[in-house]
């Protein structure tokens, strides 16, 4: 069940309109739905018949290299780019047909700092609230609450130019969620941030998400997609190549993982023993490596105890053991044949 709070303020009073949408309606669970969404610039196809759904309450990541069409997709979802064809809905509102209404459902954190330089920190929030129909009093109160929550309260009267990159980013997130949008859209939110600010932003997004905020973010940062997103769409050349949770993508498309074991003593003996212990099929291989051996296969993690026990049985000393899991990087390489680089 989803709860919408619509704030309609008139000169005299503020009316809170609370609407409940039943879970039985499948569309209500969607924060974003794109149907055959396409954008062409001349002969160049930036986004190619893209179908996509962001479920309500999830963090959805669009992962891909620069030029994959992520930002254009984000632009079309947020009314800033007009699709050449296809439909896109945010919170159930048709973005192309009713952009003004759709904007009520969209919170945007763009790639660059778009804070209003003519206003100070709190005014950036206060006027945003006013644009979205809040009364003066209400907007001021919500702005103060958000500054407190985003740890910017002591900087409320500063010009925005006095904020660090991380602080400016936090203020932009606060601004974007101020009008309780159905989806928070962030374009490459952590590019250009120092590691500390990056982690802080991830914490903020996770906290917002645990309060029910749906999030759509574009990124070319593997770690970000991996650690933050419930589901990831890998995108290249304007198309979604694969979609799933990080674990699903790695399992299905990441290729093999390997168990690297370093031992002192006769490695060949151990390899022979393991060949017997592990019913090696064509998918699992045991190969000698520097100071030890490597077991390569699809689910080698379950072989850790057998490998260690076998080594001990032969009185070999295991001094290093590491599991190299498939990564989103390997998923991407397997999908496109090239690396995911900045």
């Amino acid at each position: 069940m989803r709860l919408f709070v619509s704030i309609i303020s008139t000169r005299a009073e503020t009316v809170y309109c609370i609407c409940i949408v039943e879970t039985s309606d499948p569309v209500a669970k969607l924060a974003v739905k794109a149907v055959k969404l396409t954008k062409t610039y001349g002969s160049k196809v930036a986004v190619d018949e893209l179908d996509m759904e962001v479920k309500s309450g999830e963090i959805f990541g669009l992962l891909g290299p620069n030029g994959a069409g992520k930002t254009t997709t984000g632009g079309m979802i947020t009314t800033r780019v007009l699709p050449t064809s296809g439909q896109v809905y945010v919170g159930g509102v048709d973005v192309v047909k009713h952009p003004a209404e759709a904007k009520l459902e969209i919170g945007v954190v763009p790639q660059s700092n778009t804070l209003d330089r003519s206003l100070n920190v709190i005014q950036n929030l206060y006027f945003h609230g006013r644009y979205f129909g809040m009364s003066r009093k209400q907007s001021k109160q919500v702005a103060l609450d958000l500054l407190e929550r985003f740890k910017l309260a002591d900087r409320q009267s500063l010009p925005v130019s006095a904020l660090s990159g991380g602080m400016a980013q936090r203020l932009m997130v606060a601004r974007a969620i101020m009008h309780t949008p159905a989806v928070l859209v962030l374009d490459e939110p952590t590019s250009g941030l120092d590691p500390q600010s990056r982690l802080a932003l991830w914490d903020i997004l996770q906290e917002l998400n645990s309060d029910g905020q749906s999030v759509l973010l574009t990124t070319h940062n593997m770690e970000e997609a991996d650690g933050l997103c419930d589901r990831i769409a890998i995108m290249d050349h304007g198309k979604i190549l694969a979609l799933g949770s990080s674990a699903e993508l790695k399992r299905d498309l990441g290729g093999t993982s390997s168990l690297v074991m370093k031992v002192s003593g006769d490695v060949r003996q151990l390899i022979q023993k393991l060949m017997v212990e592990i019913s090696t099929d064509s998918m699992t291989k045991i190969v000698p490596s520097d100071d030890g051996l490597k077991i390569v296969g699809h689910d080698v993690a379950q072989l850790i105890s057998i490998a260690v026990t076998s080594a001990e049985a032969l009185s070999l000393k295991v001094y290093d053991l590491s599991l190299v899991e498939p990564s989103l990087e390997t998923v991407f390489i397997n999908l496109t044949g090239r690396e995911l680089r900045d």
Binding site: I8, V21, V27, V93, E101
Partner: peptide, 9 residues
């Protein structure tokens, strides 16, 4: 189906 979900007047 979509239009049913539009909550704002």
């Amino acid at each position: 189906t979509m239009s049913q979900v539009v909550v704002r007047d």
